[in-house]
Design a protein around this nucleic acid. Sequence first.
DNA 1: AGGCTGTCTCGACATCTGTCAAATCAAACA
DNA 2: TGTTTGATTTGACAGATGTCGAGACAGCCT
Lengths: 125, 125
Amino acid sequence: MSKQPAVLTLADLNGAEPCCTPLAERRIPAETAAMLAPAFKALGDPVRLQLMSMIASAPDGEICVCDLTPAFELSGPTISHHLRTLREAGLVDADRRGTWVYYRARAGVLRQLATLLTVEASPTS
Amino acid sequence: MSKQPAVLTLADLNGAEPCCTPLAERRIPAETAAMLAPAFKALGDPVRLQLMSMIASAPDGEICVCDLTPAFELSGPTISHHLRTLREAGLVDADRRGTWVYYRARAGVLRQLATLLTVEASPTS
DNA sequence: AGGCTGTCTCGACATCTGTCAAATCAAACA
DNA sequence: TGTTTGATTTGACAGATGTCGAGACAGCCT
């Protein structure tokens, strides 16, 4: 019935699933890397990193595109393109309500990435 | 004497510095985003993410290039290129000892990135 | 010294990416 | 039903990126 995608993406996760142990704990397999890399790639642009921060730190948990666009000296289509990248990476969800479109962060996914980068306290810095 | 670089990079940090609060806590400024984005960008490739994991999870805290290269079906120069990217992003340090070159993770930087992605436990998943 | 082995640099090439202007879509409102 | 406003899609283009082969460099070991 439902066709299973060839490669899993972060967008498929609820956010409550295990997914992955810290990067430094054991070597992550190729499939896991293929699933996670797009998320980091999406965060690997200064504009998108700021967008992500604006969305994640929005007081109401969501923020209108109309509040995001004027924060940058970039065209509307360019911001829209970056937002799409964040969406396809599974980092944010979009929701149209009337005229405006609101974005909200997927906290579960962010938490997964944070866990992945976690390193245990070590003696050598 | 020492010329201050125009834009700070993560490679300049010791790892003990404050640098940044969680992304979701307050909107990160453009300068901070410019400093951090390259690190995420470096992690945004499946091969480099696996390399990073192999380096960070190495039993002795370091791993030889000769152990990294055969783990992928890629040419030596390509692996070397990816390692250089990780190095320039400030994520790893390289150290030649005799014939072999050893890479080790910069735990402090990884910790900073993990902190940045941290989100407080929330009711809505 | 000469050769061998491991790693990196260089040059080239196909693909991907960030950006914009123009066109399109969606919802509200006159 | 038009028109207007907000947001996305499309098409185009310069610049960046991933990959490789060939060559250069750095230490070993005869």
